[in-house]
Design a protein around this nucleic acid. Structure first.
Length: 831
RNA sequence: GCGGGAGUGGCGGAAUUGGCAGACGCGCCAGAUUUAGGAUCUGGUAGGCUAUGCUUGUGGGGGUUCAAGUCCCCCCUCUCGCACCA
């Protein structure tokens, strides 16, 4: 070992051996129960939660650490700040991958899940994440999922769960139906495959009833704007009007009411055709016999194509067919043709529209293609723009609109709605894009839907919970849309809880997002036997103070869970409407090649290999230091080597100066030491609280550089040096626990562990320096510098600046015209 | 198209009530030490020039100001999310 500094020759330091420290302190901390949830009645609660992870077979990569290490630092600091901290971990353990693996290998999913959770737990302990493992939960455990089923029943009892048969989003690869959120863009969220449709009877949760509250309550949440924007967009509130057109079949003379939804009622005099979605339920009655074959063929073709095909085709070209029928505009009794076209979506509005080609781009494209008239009815800014070439979508003044001519769009929408209400053919209406939450899944490895189907009583909730998942050997799904559970006949056949007659169990399981919609409540009292949670414990710990995870669940987990909380609030079970007050999304860690880490690309870095090579402390510190918490960053092995070197410098400087005589000889050094120590403590405190871990580490590096540069004089600063080391170790401890604890013990500081120390304060007085450098500018350009007292007067600053040789030279005898002075910082002279 | 975020050295990034651009780290260069180094230590490191100084410089172009990475206007690029939602 190379010797430096002041140690006498031959007295070698033992080198920084992270492996030895980890081996020494892990069992010691375990024995002390350092991570147990605080119960001190005199302390404030702090609940910090990481996203509920699905334990995949691949284990954790360093990317996951970007989530778990920062929250761990926050929790450790909060404990030192004197909070009772709840920092739990558990497993979102139901789900497809374990089931797929089980099908391939014949190992039961519960066994697969056990292996995977063991790996996750081991790795989380490897990076020394300070979870209270006594509170671990597992959503596939009957003690847990019986309460997921309990909440299903709660939703059922409150009229928020219903069964309906319809065309559902179906992923042919996963052989499962998907919720709207899981099939965004027609792409399956799990396998990225194209989604098709399948007609099935499924359970839904009525999340649309809560759309307005889900939208409005977003305003008060401290969440990333992007997530809030995504949720607002997903909920998609729009205000408009529903107007009833009459459809006349010229062949039969029959008339049908056709409600359409529009946000542009002001353009209704420009409606020159109407369009039904191919899925519209009443198509059959609104087609003439000569058009029937063509219309039905079109409707069938449209419905058979995947979402992605339909959207992609639609971007190229609009298609549709004439039904032979006509719709009558209730405002002016004009008769306009009725089409079926796939650019009108089923499931939104009334699945039928009035088309105004003059003022809607899509209608315009369709009208041009099929030679339909275009009538201009809006003049933006009072000037008709002409609508032959393209639609004019802006608001403006009405024309060609009978009694409404000359009105502005906004006013016209109101007047025209009143007109429709008076005459009984329409009303104002609010619509949302969000659809009800399809919750049934045709899979084995999930929480069974606790419903019994009885011919006499219908669908009856099973109150005898848990409804246990039956043990099965073969649970491979098929293309039928029937769950594998349907094959467990002994389990399926049961008796009706209402009438006692023979009945059958529902054979679907719940989507995994049901399990994760309440787990944050379970952690408050994870071992509660007779109820999902202890209300007192929930009142103490909830809402969650800090929730951290990736951005990928913006419109899935994060919206479903908010819905369940509101339902529980309505049921009187909770006294808050939102459970995640502060949400933060960590940025992804990319491979060294700038690509997403993936097994197939071979660029995955595991914490295991990094801990082996550089130690847990260096890994933790690098994750914190590599860049802003929210930023997407590339992994760099040179980077972690850098933080490892830093830790070695810490080790050296503390050990080399640990045994100092207390002689107060060097006043300058003492002042500097006080200044640097206070500045570092302040910066680290504020940066950790502000989630700016990278700059907190940078300031610690600066501080250690300062100590290192002065280590030969350490003994001349009296006890101050030792005090600075003490504070350094305390603020370093949440980030790098092992080296901090070891050096704390070596220094012989008071207390059983560095983690039981109070977080240090700083004295603002220490931050005031005797002299500060003041910049002197001429015309905004720096021409000189001078040292002055920080509280020097404006006059003194001016005088001193004008005395500088360089400045006199530049002024060349001229009087300065104007002088701007920023006290303690700068003087700017304008000649 | 709509919505969110971001453009700063060779690289990751600092700096926001407008006040020294490039903290800290990586990489690189030079030196010291070592049998050796992918170890350690010291110093240097935005570009240009006629180099103790001057000048240019935070995606581009304008503007406000004594002073702009930061504020205002226009534009470009990247990125993420949504996308025929009437």
């Amino acid at each position: 070992m190379q010797r430096h500094g002041i140690n006498p020759e031959g007295c070698d330091l033992d080198p920084y051996d992270f492996g030895k420290l980890e081996k020494k302190w892990k069992p010691e901390w375990e024995r002390m129960g350092l991570y147990r949830t605080g119960t001190d009645p005199g302390k404030e609660p702090f609940y910090c939660l990481d996203y509920f992870p699905y334990p995949s077979g691949a284990g954790l990569s360093v990317g996951h650490c970007k989530n778990y290490i920062p929250t761990d630092v926050i929790c450790r600091k909060k404990r030192m700040d004197g909070f009772n901290v709840l920092h739990p971990m558990g497993w979102d353990a139901f789900g497809q991958p374990a089931e797929e693996y089980a099908i391939r290998t014949g190992v039961h999913p519960s066994a697969v899940t056990g292996i995977n959770t063991d790996t996750y737990r081991r790795q989380m302990k490897l990076i020394e994440a300070s979870y209270d493992w006594d509170r671990e939960v597992n959503s596939s455990d009957p003690d847990y999922y019986m309460w997921t089923q309990f909440f299903f029943n709660l939703l059922f009892d409150r009229g928020l769960a219903y069964e309906t048969e319809n065309e559902q989003m179906w992923c042919p690869t996963c052989r499962i139906v998907l919720s709207n959120e899981e099939a965004a863009g027609g792409i399956c969220w799990r396998c990225d495959g194209h989604v098709t449709r399948k007609k099935l009877k499924q359970w839904f949760f009525r999340i649309t009833d809560y759309a307005d509250r889900l939208l409005n309550d977003l305003d008060d949440l401290d969440w990333p704007e992007s997530i809030k924007a995504m949720q607002r967009n997903w909920i998609g509130k729009s205000t408009g009007a529903e107007v009833i057109f009459r459809v006349r079949n010229p062949e039969t003379g029959n008339e049908f009411p056709l409600p359409v939804y529009t946000t542009r009622l002001d353009t209704i005099y420009g409606a020159t055709f109407c369009v039904l979605a191919p899925e519209h339920p009443d198509i059959a009655g609104m087609v003439t016999s000569d058009r029937r074959d063509e219309v039905m063929a079109y409707s069938l073709l449209a419905r058979s194509r995947s979402e992605v095909e339909r959207t992609a085709a639609a971007e190229r070209d609009k298609t549709g067919v004439f039904t032979g029928c006509f719709a009558v505009n209730p405002y002016n009794d004009s008769e306009i043709p009725l089409y079926v076209a796939d650019y009108v979506l089923a499931g939104y509005g009334t699945s039928a529209i009035m088309a105004v080609p003059a003022h809607d781009e899509r209608d315009h494209a369709f009208a041009v293609k099929y030679g339909i008239p275009i009538i201009e009815v809006i003049a933006p800014g009072g000037v008709p723009r002409g609508v032959v070439e393209a639609a004019a979508v802006a608001d403006g003044q009405l024309l060609n609109s009978g009694p409404f001519d000359g009105m502005d769009s906004a006013e016209a929408r109101e007047r025209m709605a009143e007109y429709a209400i008076d005459r009984g053919f329409g009303r104002t209406d609010t619509r949302y894009r969000i659809r009800d939450w399809l919750v049934s899944r045709q899979r084995y490895w999930g929480a069974p839907i606790p419903v019994i189907h009885c011919v006499r009583c219908g669908s009856v909730p099973d109150r005898d919970l848990p409804v246990l998942l039956p043990r099965m050997d073969n649970f491979e799904p098929d293309d039928s849309g029937r769950s594998p559970l349907a094959r467990a006949e002994d389990w399926v056949n049961t008796t009706c809880p209402a009438c006692g007659g023979p009945a059958e169990r529902d054979t679907d399981t719940m989507a995994g997002f049901a399990c994760s919609s309440w787990y944050f409540l379970r952690f408050a009292s994870p071992h509660e036997k007779d109820r999902p949670f202890d209300p007192d414990a929930v009142r103490y710990w909830l809402p969650v103070d800090l929730y951290v995870g990736g951005a990928e669940h913006a419109v899935m987990h994060l919206i479903y869970a908010r819905f369940w909380t509101k339902v529980m609030y309505d049921a009187g079970m909770l006294d808050f409407r939102e459970h995640f007050l502060v949400l933060k999304n960590q940025g992804m860690i990319l491979g060294a090649d700038g690509q997403k880490m993936s097994k197939s690309k071979g660029n995955v870095i595991t914490p295991d290999e990094m801990v082996e090579k550089y130690g847990t402390d260096a890994l933790r510190l690098y994750i914190l230091f590599m860049g802003p918490f929210e930023a997407e960053l590339e992994w760099s092995e040179e980077g972690i080597a850098g933080t490892y070197r830093f830790l070695k410098r810490v080790w050296t400087v503390v050990n080399e100066t640990s045994d100092q005589p207390f002689e107060e000889e060097d006043r300058d050094l003492m002042d500097e030491l006080r200044f640097h120590t206070a500045r570092t403590v302040k910066k680290v405190t504020e940066d950790i609280d502000g989630f700016a871990f990278n700059t907190a580490v940078a300031s610690l590096m600066e501080f250690v550089n300062f100590l290192s540069a002065n280590r030969e004089r350490a003994g001349t600063a009296g006890s101050l040096w030792r005090d600075s080391i003490r504070k350094l170790l305390v603020v370093l401890a949440p980030m790098t626990p092992f080296i901090s604890e070891e050096l704390w013990q070596r220094m012989g500081f008071q207390g059983d562990t560095v983690f039981h120390q109070q977080w240090p304060c700083w004295d603002e007085g220490d931050l005031v320096q005797d002299a500060v450098e003041v910049v002197v500018q001429v015309r905004g350009r720096i021409r000189g510098r001078m040292m002055l007292a920080p509280d020097a007067s404006r006059d003194e600053m001016c005088r001193r600046a004008l005395e500088l040789d360089r400045i006199r030279e530049l002024l060349d005898g001229h009087e300065p015209g104007r002088i701007i002075v920023v006290p303690g910082k700068l003087v700017n002279i304008i000649p």
